[in-house]
Nucleic acid binder design. Structure first.
Lengths: 338, 338
DNA sequence: CTGAAAGCGCTAACAC
DNA sequence: GTGTTAGCGCTTTCAG
C-alpha cells in the first residue's frame, strides 16, 4: 500500500512536503503540489487514517451505541430510524460511525467508555440504554463527549435529545377524556426508562386536571414488550371490566394489548379505546389503525449527531426537545353511554 | 490517557514486558504479569487500537457498506435485518463494524475501496449495491476481502450470500398456476439487480413448464419502489383487464400494486391474486395479508459476516445460497371461472 | 524471563 | 518553500 514516503521518493521531496501538499496547506508551491497530487493519484494513494488519528489524537469517528439491534426488535424500527437519522447527518461530515452494541458478550466484559476509548472514538451517541445501566454512569462521567437519546443527563460533555414526553402523554390522555372516557388505564414500560416516568406524569396531569380519579392498580408495566403487555392486559381487563380506554407507553405494547382484547372478545374501539406511543410503521397498518403519539425518530438521530459534531467542534452540550404529535386513527372512539 | 509506557514506569519494567503481559504471552513470570495487570486496572488503562492496528497492519474492523439507510427505506426493513444479522455475528468476535453508506456526498467523491483503505478495514460486506455501480467492480477487483449480498461475483477474495431466487420465484408462480391462473403478470424490479434477473427466470421457467404462454408486455419494472409499482400496475391493469394474477419481485412493490388495484376497484384476491417477495414485516399486517416468498434476511447478514471473518482467518471465499419459503396468506385465491 | 531498539504512517515544531 | 527530526502508542525482532 502506498505511503507518503513512496510519494516523497517519487517526487523527489520530503514526506513533510507531501503531507502539507496533500492536506492543502498554503506553504507549498503550486508546482510541487500539482506534481505530488499527480503522483499520489497515479500510485493510487489512500491516506492511512489510523496513523493520522494516532498522531492527531482524534479519530474522526463517532461511536453509535444501541441496544435495539436484535432479532426481536425488528418490529420496532425505532432503533433503525434513529440510526438512519444519525447516518444522514454524519454522511455530510468527514466523520465515520462505528457501531457498538450493548447486548454482546464482548460488551459485557467491557464498559461503554472502554469500548469508546479502545477505538478512540471522538464522541458517542447512546440509544436504548436503561437508566439503571451501571455502564451508563460510567461513560457519562468519563471525559468522552456523549449525546444521550431519551436520558436527561447533562454536563459540559454530555447533552441529550428527547421529546416532550409529558406533554405527548397528556395530549393522548386528554384525547381519551374528550371522548368521554373516565375509566382509563395505562400500560407503562418499566421503571428504568426515563420516558416511562415522563409519560406516567403526563397521564397523571391530564387525569388530575380533568378531576378524574386515578386507580393505581390500573397502571401496569408491560416492559415495552408486546408479549408482556398482552399478558398484563389480559389480566387487567379480566379483573377490571369497567375500563373503557387504555393509554400505552409504546405502540408495540398497544399491539399486545389489542391482541389481549381480541382474545377477551372486546372490540376496539367499540368496547375499549387504545392509544399507543411512537407511531411505528405498523401503527398505520394494523386493523384498526392505531391512534398514537408520533415521535420523529429520524430527527432524533439527526439532532443527536448534529449536537455531537457541534460539541466536537468546541460548542457546548445542549438539550434538544422535539415536539410530538397526536395522530388520531381508528383505535379510539367515544365511550359508550351507560 | 494511560499508555503502556505509564504502566511500565509504574511497574518498573519495560514496555515490552507490559505488552507481552497484557497480551497473554507465556514468557512472562506470573508475578510480573499479575503486577502489571493490577497496575493497568488501577490506572484504568485501555489499549489504543489505533496504534496496535498501525503496527499490526490490521484493524480488526470490518466495513458495512449499505445503500438502504435512507428515510424512505424504513418501510422495507430488509437493510436493518441484514445489519442485525451482521451485528449479531460480529458481536461474538473481536471485530467491530464501521458503517459506510453509498448515498452520501462523501462517498460520491471516494470509491468504495478508497473508503475501505482509508479506514484500513480488514474486509467489507456490501449490501444493496446495483450491479452497474462502477464502484462495485472497483472494490471487487481490489485486494480487500469482500462479501457481497445478492451479487454473484466470486474470486479468491470475494464471496457472496444469496437465496435461491430462481426457485423461489418459480414456487410463487407455480402456486398461482395451481390456483388455476393462466393470465399472470410480473412486476419486476430493475435491470441492475441480480435478483430481478433470477426471479424473472423463475417466472419464465414456471410458465414454460406449465405450457402457459408468456406475454412480454405483462412483465413490467417497478424499480423496487412502492410508488413506481403502483403507477405501473395502474397502467397495466387498466390496459389489460384479463390479467388475474401478478407476481411481484418485492413486497413493497406488491403493496404498491395492491393500492393500484384498490383504485381500480379490483378486489384482492377475488379479482386479482397478488404474490410478493421478501416477507417484510408489513406483509403479514396489511389487509389482505400478503402471500409471499420469505427470505431470511437476518441469516443473510449473519452468514455474510461469518464468511468474511472466516476469510480473514485464512479460509476461502465461498458462495452461500439460502433457501426461501413460500408463505401463503390471503392475497391469493383460485381464479374465478369464466 | 526481560529489555533495547526499530518501525508502522503520519503530523508538527523548528530550522534553513 | 522545503527538509530534519521527533514522536503518537504499540508490537516485534534480537540480545542477553
Amino acid at each position: 500500500m502506498t505511503t507518503i514516503k513512496d510519494i516523497a521518493k517519487a517526487a523527489g521531496v520530503s514526506v513533510t512536503t507531501v503531507s502539507r501538499a496533500l492536506n492543502g496547506y498554503s506553504d507549498v508551491s503550486e508546482k510541487t503540489r500539482k506534481k505530488i497530487i499527480d503522483i499520489a493519484k497515479q500510485l493510487n494513494y489512500s491516506p492511512n487514517t489510523l496513523a493520522r488519528s494516532l498522531v492527531m489524537n482524534k479519530s474522526k469517528t463517532i461511536g453509535l451505541l444501541v441496544s435495539g439491534m436484535t432479532r426481536s426488535a425488528v418490529k420496532d424500527n425505532f432503533t433503525f430510524e434513529v440510526m438512519t437519522g444519525v447516518n444522514d447527518y454524519i454522511a455530510k461530515t468527514d466523520y465515520d460511525v462505528i457501531l457498538f452494541n450493548t447486548n454482546s458478550t464482548k460488551q459485557r466484559e467491557k464498559t461503554y467508555s472502554q469500548l469508546c476509548r479502545e477505538r478512540r472514538v471522538d464522541g458517542v451517541i447512546l440509544q436504548g440504554i436503561k437508566t439503571d445501566d451501571p455502564y451508563l454512569t460510567e461513560v457519562v462521567e468519563s471525559d468522552i463527549p456523549c449525546v444521550l437519546i431519551d436520558i436527561p443527563i447533562q454536563s459540559d460533555r454530555v447533552g441529550y435529545v428527547t421529546t416532550d414526553n409529558v406533554y405527548g402523554a397528556k395530549k393522548a390522555v386528554q384525547h381519551l377524556l374528550e371522548l368521554g372516557h373516565r375509566n382509563i388505564a395505562m400500560m407503562n414500560g418499566h421503571d428504568y426508562a426515563f420516558v416511562s416516568k415522563q409519560r406516567l406524569q403526563g397521564f397523571y396531569e391530564a387525569m388530575e386536571e380533568a378531576n378524574v380519579p386515578i386507580r393505581k392498580e390500573w397502571v401496569v408495566n408491560g416492559d415495552f414488550s408486546e408479549e408482556m403487555a398482552e399478558a398484563r392486559a389480559y389480566e387487567l381487563f379480566t379483573n377490571e371490566p369497567n375500563i373503557t380506554a387504555i393509554f400505552c407507553a409504546s405502540d408495540l405494547m398497544a399491539l399486545g394489548v389489542m391482541k389481549a382484547l381480541k382474545q377477551l372478545h372486546l372490540r376496539v374501539p367499540d368496547d375499549v379505546s387504545v392509544v399507543g406511543y411512537d407511531d411505528i410503521l405498523l401503527a398505520s397498518y394494523v386493523s384498526p389503525a392505531l391512534t398514537t403519539v408520533a415521535q420523529n425518530k429520524f430527527q432524533m438521530g439527526y439532532e443527536a449527531a448534529s449536537m455531537l459534531i457541534d460539541m466536537l467542534e468546541g460548542n457546548e452540550a445542549k438539550v434538544v426537545t422535539l415536539r410530538t404529535q397526536l395522530v388520531v386513527r381508528e383505535s379510539t372512539a367515544e365511550v359508550k353511554k351507560g
